[in-house]
Amino acid sequence: MDSDLDIAFKEAFIEISKLKEAVAPDVMLKLYAYNKHANFGSNSPHYEKLDVRNAFKVNAWMQIKDMSSNDAKQEYIKLAKSLLNSKK
């Protein structure tokens, strides 16, 4: 059974996924990093082609490598709420 944190994280992900407006690249990288870390921990991603876009993603993810999965979920939720409230 999912914890309250897991449920809130999934709900935040769903709401962010519904956004139609553009989001600033630095915010998108943070959301990406928190999401990946919450789901996969600090396991390094493997890209067949490490282009500039993927390099930025990997860098964002590795910057939070010492964060716990639960902390990553909480930061994702906080950032998502802030972003969603600014779009209203």
Rank of each mutant, 00 (worst) to 15 (best):
N59A: 09
Y76D: 01
N70G: 03
F9I: 02
G41K: 09
D6F: 04
D2H: 07
D6K: 07
D51H: 04
D6I: 05
L84E: 01
L29M: 12
L31Q: 04
F9P: 00
D4M: 06
Y47E: 05
R53H: 13
K57D: 09
S68K: 14
N54Y: 05
L29W: 09
I64M: 03
L83P: 00
L79S: 05
Y47S: 05
K65S: 15
S44K: 13
E75H: 08
K87W: 10
Y76K: 03
Y32H: 14
K65Q: 13
Y76F: 14
Q74H: 12
K73A: 00
Y76E: 02
D66L: 07
L84A: 02
A22T: 15
K65M: 10
G41H: 06
Y47G: 01
K18D: 07
M1V: 05
A80I: 00
S17T: 09
D6M: 08
Y47D: 03
K30E: 14
E21F: 15
M67Q: 07
L79R: 03
N85V: 11
S3C: 02
F13T: 08
K18A: 11
E15A: 10
A12T: 06
V27C: 07
D71R: 08
V58Q: 04
M1Y: 04
H46A: 12
K65T: 12
A38W: 00
F13K: 11
A72W: 00
K57N: 08
P45V: 07
N70Q: 14
F40N: 15
N39G: 13
H37D: 05
K10D: 07
S42F: 09
M67T: 04
E21H: 15
E21W: 12
Q74C: 12
N39R: 13
N85R: 08
K78Y: 10
D51Q: 04
F56P: 05
H37V: 04
L50D: 00
F40K: 12
P25G: 11
I64S: 01
I14Y: 06
E21M: 14
Y47Q: 01
V23G: 05
K36F: 07
L19N: 06
D26Y: 09
K78W: 08
L83F: 02
A33K: 00
N54M: 04
I77K: 09
N85G: 07
A80Y: 00
L5T: 04
K20D: 15
Y32T: 06
A33Q: 01
A38S: 12
F9L: 04
K73T: 01
L19H: 03
K87S: 13
V58C: 03
M67D: 02
S3T: 14
K49Q: 08
D66S: 09
Y47P: 00
S17G: 13
R53A: 13
F13E: 07
E48H: 13
D71T: 14
W61A: 00
A80N: 01
H46Y: 08
Q74N: 12
M67S: 05
M1E: 05
D51S: 05
S69V: 12
E15G: 06
N85Y: 09
D51N: 11
V27A: 04
S68T: 15
A33N: 01
A80S: 10
A72G: 01
S82K: 10
K36H: 09
D4N: 08
